[in-house]
Structure formats: structure tokens, C-alpha cells
């Protein structure tokens, strides 16, 4: 127990690694890799997502091949692959950090593309028809009507993907990036008797970030009014299906027994 408190007191090391004296690492590195990858892959993923939806086969097929290949590949493999192959293909070394960012961006692009595609497909056809029949071009219909709605649908998936991507960044320890997992391993190697405490510290680090993200997602969902979408099916009120049990209790029951 005191080992755990001691480790927690030195949590700064888990947060930023050896930072002023050495390179930044730890949780900070996990977060920066994840955020960078998410941003890069959001834009590229959107391109692939729309590409897959294209009715032109020479556009959609390459996108399908890319997405399906990458999704069938473990992140660990991609990280290794880029680590070893970028230098031999480009003929020069890329820093560990960027090699990891590129690998994980390519990995997450495939998932983001699928999130974008699912979001767009979730919008009923009638929305596109209404927009087109009012004289908008396909591009206007997409940007003014479809995407604003689809984006709201995508947000929960983006956040849950961010959480899993954030945890996935821990595989970069295999190419020697000193992120949270690597820090924990360093600690256990230096002080084997602190092993248990070190592992708990890592878990706490991951948990705090992931949990706050999923909390943020819930707040966002409420703020953006996902309930708006219940208007898609005039006969079914989706709000009824989303009701939390605690709220359901306060409702008057129809058949008091």
C-alpha cells in the first residue's frame, strides 16, 4: 500500500516521463499520439468514408480494399511495419514518434472512414430527397443537410473510437516509445518490488483519461440534442426508447396495480 502511495506521489513521472531532463513521455505522450492520430485520420477517414459511398466503382473499390485490409490488421503489426519499412522505403530515418503516429493514423483512418460512412447512411433517404427537390446541388445537400445531422450521430462513435485508440497507443512501447506502459515497465525493472504499485498506477492513468472522455461524450450528446433525431420516424418516439430507468420511475404508470 505504501508503495502505491509512493508511486502516486511520483505520478509526475508517469505523466510526462523524464521531461525536462529527457524527452517527454508517459501519459502525455499517449494523449498526444492519440489526438494527433485522431485529427489526421478524421480528415483522411472522411475522404475514404465518402469514397466508399461513391457510386463510381473506381473510387469506391480502392476505398473498400484499403478499409477492409487495415481493419483486418492488428495495430501492433502496423506499428512494427512502419518502424521497419519506412526507413528502407524512404531511405532515411523517421523519428520513433512520427513513425508511431503515421502507423496509428493509417490504422485509425480505416475505422474513422467506417464511422463516417455509418453516420451518413444513418440519415434517412428522405432528407437527401427533400434537399435535392428544393433545388440544392448534391454538394449543398450534403454539406447543409446531411453532414450536420450525420456528425451528431457520429460523435458517440468518435469518442468511443478515441478511447480505444488511446488505449491502442500503448502498443507503441514495442518500438521503444516511452509512453505510460513503457514507464511502468521501466519502474518495475528498476524496482521489482514496486511492480504491483506501478501496474496500478498505469491502470489509473488510463482509466482517468478514458472515463473522462466517455463522460464528456455524454455531455456532448446531451448538448447537441441527439433527441432531435426522433423526428425521423413520426410514429415511434425514440425518446421513449432512450429513457433511463431512473427517469422512467417518475413517470405515471398507465396501469396501477
Amino acid at each position: 500500500m505504501e508503495f502505491l502511495l509512493e508511486q502516486l506521489a511520483n505520478f509526475k513521472f508517469y505523466l510526462i516521463g523524464a521531461y525536462p531532463r529527457g524527452a517527454a513521455g508517459g501519459l502525455f505522450l499517449n494523449i498526444s499520439i492519440a489526438v494527433l492520430c485522431l485529427t489526421i485520420s478524421f480528415f483522411i477517414g472522411a475522404i475514404f468514408g465518402f469514397g466508399r459511398l461513391s457510386c463510381r466503382k473506381f473510387v469506391s473499390y480502392p476505398c473498400i480494399i484499403y478499409i477492409e485490409t487495415i481493419r483486418a490488421t492488428p495495430a501492433l503489426l502496423l506499428v512494427f511495419w512502419f518502424f521497419f519499412f519506412i526507413p528502407s522505403v524512404l531511405g532515411k530515418n523517421v523519428s520513433l514518434f512520427w513513425s508511431a503516429v503515421i502507423a496509428l493514423s493509417i490504422y485509425s483512418t480505416a475505422y474513422q472512414a467506417e464511422i463516417v460512412r455509418a453516420g451518413i447512411l444513418a440519415i434517412p433517404k428522405g432528407q437527401m430527397e427533400a434537399a435535392l427537390s428544393s433545388g440544392m446541388s448534391r454538394f449543398q445537400a450534403l454539406t447543409l443537410v446531411i453532414i450536420p445531422q450525420a456528425f451528431r450521430i457520429m460523435i458517440p462513435s468518435f469518442v468511443s473510437f478515441f478511447i480505444s485508440l488511446f488505449k491502442e497507443t500503448s502498443v507503441t512501447y514495442v518500438i521503444g516509445i516511452v509512453e505510460l506502459l513503457q514507464i511502468g515497465i521501466i519502474v518495475t525493472q528498476r524496482q521489482p518490488n514496486r511492480m504491483f504499485a506501478a501496474y496500478i498506477c498505469m491502470a489509473i492513468g488510463f482509466f482517468v483519461v478514458c472515463y473522462s472522455m466517455s463522460h464528456l461524450a455524454r455531455v456532448l450528446e446531451k448538448r447537441l440534442g441527439i433527441h432531435d433525431l426522433s423526428s425521423y420516424r413520426p410514429t415511434v418516439c425514440r425518446a421513449d426508447l432512450l429513457l433511463k430507468p431512473c427517469e422512467a420511475k417518475n413517470l405515471p404508470t398507465q396501469n396501477p396495480t
Binding site: 432528407q127 430527397e129 427533400a130 443537410v145 445531422q149 451528431r152 433525431l229 425521423y232
Partner: peptide
């Protein structure tokens, strides 16, 4: 349209 298709946002 039958189902109105108003823009819900």
C-alpha cells in the same frame, strides 16, 4: 413528402 422530411437540426 408523406413523412414531411423536415430538417430535424
Amino acid at each position: 413528402f408523406q413523412h414531411f422530411n423536415l430538417y430535424p437540426h
